[in-house]
């Protein structure tokens, strides 16, 4: 563990608390992509199956359980409690365009041909693109509530902070995980446009609006 990974994980935690706070205080999941949230449940469940087979640390176990539980809770909020505020007609990204290629990539790039490794690899690839339905929705509506942009910023910062973590681990432990690094760079790259608007508008006190 190093500070980059630790703050990355904290940022990830913060993003989830911000999202739950947004939904429960505004009593609305308007502006949030259900598809992206469903993909995160898939990512966490397929990656953290090893909860039952290998123990890393108490920190690791608690975080894994939290990510699975909180992502399921968000689906519950969107699908049951605040269902009327969820508008599927603007959440139109086709999931098969994401899931299909991730299955293929996992079959080609993995650290072993067994179910655990294949699902782990699949989850890494899927996580890297899981935000696309959300970003696509943002692009379509052209604007976002400020709290939603804070959620996205925290979520983007999480994987961005993993990059210095990997550099640090390479030099301190000789640890290299090419699958995570490649997918992590892609994942962070997808946020660049968003971050540009976030830093130049939202953090200057303006509303998040995309040029028409």
């Amino acid at each position: 563990m190093n500070i980059f990974r630790f703050f990355g994980d904290l940022s990830h935690l913060a993003s989830i608390f911000i999202l739950i706070h947004k939904i429960t205080t505004t009593r609305s999941c308007r502006g949030i992509s259900f598809k992206t949230q469903a993909l995160y449940v898939t990512v966490f469940v397929t990656r953290y199956l090893d909860l039952f087979t290998s123990y890393v640390s108490l920190y690791n176990t608690v975080m894994k359980i939290f990510f699975i539980a909180s992502s399921c809770y968000i689906l519950y909020l969107m699908r049951v409690r605040y269902r009327p505020t969820n508008d599927p007609s603007i959440d139109t990204f086709r999931l098969e365009y994401l899931v299909g290629p991730c299955v293929v990539l996992a079959l080609i790039f993995n650290y072993g041909y067994n179910p655990t490794e294949l699902l782990w690899s699949f989850s890494i690839f899927l996580e890297s693109v899981a935000i696309l339905p959300q970003l696509f929705m943002l692009q379509r509506t052209g604007e976002a509530e400020t709290i939603t942009t804070h959620y996205l910023a925290a979520l983007g910062a999480y994987r961005a902070l993993y990059i210095p973590n990997w550099i640090y681990r390479y030099f301190s432990e000789g640890y290299v995980d090419p699958i995570s690094v490649t997918a992590g760079l892609v994942q962070t790259g997808l946020y660049l446009d968003f971050f540009y608007v976030y830093f130049t508008k939202v953090l200057q006190g303006q509303k998040f609006e995309l040029p028409a």
Binding site: H12, Y111, G112, Y175, D177, S180
Partner: peptide
């Protein structure tokens, strides 16, 4: 590519 890495990251 058959050597499994330790999965200690989240």
């Amino acid at each position: 590519s058959e050597s499994s890495l330790p999965k200690d990251e989240l």
